[in-house]
């Protein structure tokens, strides 16, 4: 009996029992996926219902068309703007201008806040030096210090990019600090025992360990910067999607205003989708 178990066990165990668990997990996920589609269908139906309500309200004159233009009017405004642009610039140009500001700021914030945050997470002294400044400006509404930035840099892209940079910096920095502090000591110790030290420990272990959380932080940062961007373009700009909406409002072009707002929303959704797919790509193990 005993020698029997021995003989079985001596065969190096390969895939037999090992494969069982993932297969079962997959079956479970199958049920979840079909449910997921059901909810998506419900969301789509709800969206269609509101569109229909909009169409009825505008067509049957329930609401003044200045407040609520017909969906068709917005659509034809869209076609017009696509063809002729708005105030001397194409629609793509306006969107491009806004996106350039946003991405420059986010890239700069990621490239600075993440290394600084990681170091502050590892070295308490460094954090003590940096913390007061972060804590001071973080709760401020960005538009409050935008006035200062305009004073220094004028109504330029520089002041806007700086504004968005500051807005994105704090959430990224804080995410980096906390996710580094939460790293398990075993992770670091194990890596050091394998010969990782100095910058290699940061580049090959600490950074990839916190990357999923950093991308989640980036999602927050994008939200903050995007809101700030639109507001800043409304306060002081001569181009960009936020400016387009504000400018249209001066001429009571509600069709253009609706169009601009819908485009803003679609852009935000698209950016979020990209980041979420990025998170899924870099950290498939956090799925379950």
């Amino acid at each position: 009996m005993q020698s029997n178990t021995q003989a079985q066990a001596a065969v190096p165990l390969k895939n037999g029992e090992d494969r069982l668990a993932p297969a079962a997990a997959r079956r479970g996920a199958g049920g979840k996926i079909s449910k997921e589609w059901l909810y998506r269908g419900i969301s789509a139906a709800s969206l269609l219902a509101v569109l229909l309500l909009w169409w009825c309200a505008a067509t049957f004159g329930w609401v003044n068309p200045l407040f609520l233009p017909k969906p068709q009017t917005v659509w034809s405004a869209f076609m017009d703007v696509i063809r002729d642009g708005y105030k001397g610039q194409t629609l793509l140009n306006h969107i491009g201008t806004s996106m350039r500001r946003l991405f420059l700021a986010l890239a700069a914030a990621f490239a600075t806040a993440v290394p600084l945050g990681i170091l502050c997470g590892r070295f308490r002294v460094l954090r003590a030096i940096v913390d007061p400044f972060i804590e001071f400006y973080r709760p401020l509404p960005p538009l409050a210090y935008y006035t200062l930035l305009i004073l220094w840099f004028g109504i330029t892209d520089v002041s806007k990019v700086l504004l968005l940079f500051l807005g994105a910096f704090a959430p990224l920095f804080i995410t980096a600090v906390f996710s580094v502090q939460r790293l398990s000591p075993d992770r670091i110790n194990g890596a050091r025992s394998l010969g990782a030290k100095g910058w290699k420990l940061y580049a090959f272990i600490i950074f990839p360990s916190v990357l999923p959380e950093l991308l989640t932080g980036l999602r927050t940062a994008v939200g903050v910067s995007y809101a700030t961007l639109v507001a800043a373009e409304m306060v002081a700009a001569v181009s960009g999607i936020g400016w387009l909406v504000l400018d249209a409002s001066k001429f009571l072009r509600s069709d253009i205003m609706y169009l601009g707002i819908i485009i803003m929303a679609l852009i935000a959704i698209a950016i979020d989708l990209v980041i979420r797919s990025l998170i899924r790509r870099v950290s498939p193990w956090t799925e379950q």
Binding site: S184, D186, R187, N189, G190, A191, S193, I205, P208, S209, L211, V282, S283, W285
Partner: peptide, 11 residues
């Protein structure tokens, strides 16, 4: 060092 939990790098 081999830990109680395998402690592999998940990425």
């Amino acid at each position: 060092v081999v830990f109680q939990q395998a402690n592999l790098f998940p990425w």
